[in-house]
C-alpha cells in the first residue's frame, strides 16, 4: 500500500475527518438468536460481532471460582477480515488481545453474583479497518448487558493515534499503519475508570495527557450511542409485547 497523505493541507485527515472526529458509529444490540446476549458494532468499515453465553456451567470444573463467576473471552478475526488472509491459527496478537479485552470487562461485571459459573464472551472481527480491539470492547460490554448480566457500567473503547505529529481520534487502518502511535483506550464512563490502556508508539508526557483527554471525549460520545442502542432495543421489545 502506498503511503497516503495522512493530514491534508486543510488540516483534515485522509478520509476528510477532523482530528477529533469519530468515524460513523453503528451499534445494534440483540442481533443473534441463540446467544444470551449479542451486539454488532461498527466504527466506519470496522465491523465486530460479540456474543455472550451464560452465566452457565462448564465441564472444565477446575477453572471455576468458589466466590464468583469466571469470564472467558476470545477475540478472533475471520480469515477474510483483513487485506492479507489471516491464518486461522490463533496468533500471538489474538491471544494478547483476548486477555486485555477480558481484563477491560472484569471490573464492571458483577461476577460475585454467579459463583462457580462461567460467562463466555466470543468476539468475531468480521471486517478490520483499525480499532478492532476497541470496537470489540464496546460490542462485548453491550452483549453482556443484553444478556441481562448485572453490571456496574458499560465499557466503551476508542483508539487515539498520532499521525504526522497530530493527535487524532478513532484511527483507521491506514492511519495505524503509517502513523507514529496507536493508543487504544477503554473506559467505564459512569465509574470514571480506565479499564484498557495500551500504547504502541512513542509519545511525550504532554502528548500522552492530550491523547488521553481526546480518548475520553471520544469514549463519552460512543457511550451515548451505545446507551441509546441498548435503550431503544428494550423499547422495541416493550412495544412488541
Amino acid at each position: 500500500m502506498e503511503r497516503p497523505r495522512l493530514i491534508r493541507e486543510d488540516g483534515l485527515r485522509h478520509d476528510g475527518r477532523r482530528p477529533d472526529e469519530l468515524r460513523p458509529v453503528k451499534v445494534s444490540v440483540g442481533v443473534l438468536n441463540k446467544a444470551s446476549g449479542s451486539a454488532l458494532v461498527e466504527y466506519g468499515a470496522t465491523k465486530v460481532l460479540a456474543a455472550v453465553h451464560g452465566p452457565r456451567e462448564i465441564p472444565l470444573r477446575h477453572l471455576l471460582l468458589p466466590d464468583r463467576a469466571i469470564i472467558r473471552c476470545r477475540y478472533h478475526m475471520l480469515t477474510f477480515s483483513t487485506h492479507e488472509r489471516k491464518s486461522p491459527v490463533p496468533s500471538r496478537r489474538e491471544i494478547e488481545l483476548s486477555k486485555v479485552i477480558r481484563e477491560s470487562l472484569e471490573p464492571v461485571v458483577m461476577t460475585e453474583m454467579f459463583p462457580r459459573a462461567a460467562i463466555d464472551v466470543f468476539i468475531e472481527v468480521i471486517n478490520a479497518d483499525g480499532g478492532t480491539r476497541t470496537a470489540s470492547v464496546t460490542a462485548a460490554s453491550l452483549a453482556l448487558a443484553d444478556a441481562g448480566i448485572p453490571m456496574r457500567d458499560i465499557v466503551v473503547g476508542v483508539a487515539v493515534g498520532k499521525v504526522n505529529g497530530v493527535l487524532v481520534l478513532d484511527i483507521d487502518e491506514v492511519e495505524d499503519m503509517f502513523g507514529e502511535a496507536d493508543m487504544p483506550v477503554a473506559v467505564a464512563p459512569s465509574l470514571g475508570m480506565v479499564t484498557l490502556l495500551q500504547l504502541n508508539g512513542v509519545l511525550t508526557r504532554e502528548e500522552f495527557a492530550e491523547a488521553l483527554k481526546l480518548a475520553l471525549r471520544g469514549a463519552s460520545q460512543i457511550y451515548g450511542i451505545a446507551r441509546e442502542a441498548l435503550r431503544s432495543n428494550y423499547m422495541k421489545v416493550r412495544v412488541e409485547e
Partner: peptide
C-alpha cells in the same frame, strides 16, 4: 524521558488521575 509504550494489565481499572500519576 518519553513514553515508549503502555499496557494496563490485570483485572481492575484506574481513574484518569491514577493513570496520570502512574505515568
Amino acid at each position: 524521558g518519553r513514553i515508549a509504550g503502555l499496557q494496563k494489565s490485570g483485572s481492575g481499572g484506574l481513574t484518569e488521575a491514577e493513570v496520570s500519576a502512574a505515568v
